[in-house]
Design a binder for these strands. Sequence first.
DNA 1: TAGCACGTTGGCTTT
DNA 2: TAAAGCCAACGTGCT
Length: 505
Amino acid sequence: MCLCLTVTSSYTMSKYKVIHWFRKGLRLHDNPAFLKAIEESTEIYPVFILDPWFVISSAIGINRWRFLLQSLVNLDSNLKLLNLRLFVVKGKPEIEIKRLCQEWKINRLTFEVDTEPYAVQRDKRVEEIVQAMGVEVIKCVSHTLYDVHRTVQTNGGCKTPISPTHEKDYGVPALSDLEKSETDCGPLLYPGGETEALDRMERHIKKINWICTFEKPNTSPNSIIPSTTVLSPYLKFGCLSARLFYHKLAEVYSGKKHSQPPVSLHGQMLWREFFYTVGAVTKNFDRMQGNSVCKQIPWGSNKEHLLAWTHAKTGYPFIDAIMTQLRLEGWIHHLARHAVACFLTRGDLWISWEEGQKVFEELLLDADWSLNAGNWMWLSASSFFYQYFRVYSPIAFGKKTDPNGDYIKKYLPVLKKYPAKYIYEPWKAPLSMQQTAGCVIGKDYPKPIVDHDTVRKENIKKMTEAYALDKQTKEGTKSPSKKRPSDSRPKSSSPVKKKARLSSK
DNA sequence: TAGCACGTTGGCTTT
DNA sequence: TAAAGCCAACGTGCT
């Protein structure tokens, strides 16, 4: 069901001149705010604003820029099928929306609610400005599924007034218009846009057995062909509706035996929901300090190590292959994210998860604010997950699903002649073998920047200390009246209870 | 002494 | 809230 909020309605007209402001939600299917926009409208201006806050920021990598622009091109194409056009505008949203409302004599503004902190502030400012101008604001905070064809049938009467200079004034820019270069992009494995999103979803939905038996922990982090759907970039930009996918899955499940949350595909959607929810209501969710759910851990700083991790030069082929795939292709498997995140933080390098979060924010096509912060806290055992003695081995973990190291050889071709025995630890190969393989460790490929066995033990000890200090600090800030005597607390619980508690999360 | 049963150790680890 | 628990390799002692 669509729950729309009409924020202000200063005067009533039977017909509206409407701006629908696209931000996320770059799609026509399951888009109630857009549907609202074309209801009762004589003129509709679908607008996307290239906010300098994003354009100037170096925090968005080239591959995600390409994905976004492709999504806009596709959105414009799909709008054309409805006799509509997209207007792409550069500038600060509060200024541009105000200008366009005046220029086009707009009396209704529609958009989809966005819960990220920057968006919340931005939207509040925009709303105040247009309300003062007597523009009705409609925000949709919950949705029903809408079929595009039904939308067309119901609303064939409205159109976008187009000037002959539309492309020049409001066309989707090319990467070069944003002073970014196509040649910096990696291979185009995941084209942006709603059309591709729906195609990709349908391709997976057809695999009934695969959907019904899907269990995330059993998928491979290092297969050459992705072992999961790679719908995440499309969900991040809203090229695909999360609810549409959820319902499609439910249709497949219906009447059949199927896997369950948290490991099923439905489970993955619920994890997304979980992080969005906690991210929306937790202050400073993307930082350690001032974040009520985050353990305070005295991370170190080592610029060289951070650079080595960021640029795939740690000397651990499994880690470096993952970081190479991330930079080149913009997507890595969830468990691969675990492996490199653990390595950067509590496992090996003892560097703050906030640094890793920044790198992922730049390089991931699916970089999603809430999920990124939440998962970094998870992996660094700063929140949600606390079993910090479970450290991923940069050597053993990948071997389970790729004993021959094909994944490593693909992304680190310098090691392609290494035998399977040494592919995860090439520094152990005899020098003669290194020479025969054409890759001498320390010369053609880095030596390991840390000794995993050593730092792992040191870091686990540091985590113990950090947890103890964190607990002490938290107890110190509690009011004494609420403090329970320690001997009244249950010392332990039965395995059954523990299990139940874990799975109820 | 091979072969087996069983205890110990070490390594690893999504939800 | 939070130093567990699984598994496989290895060791030991017995027949």
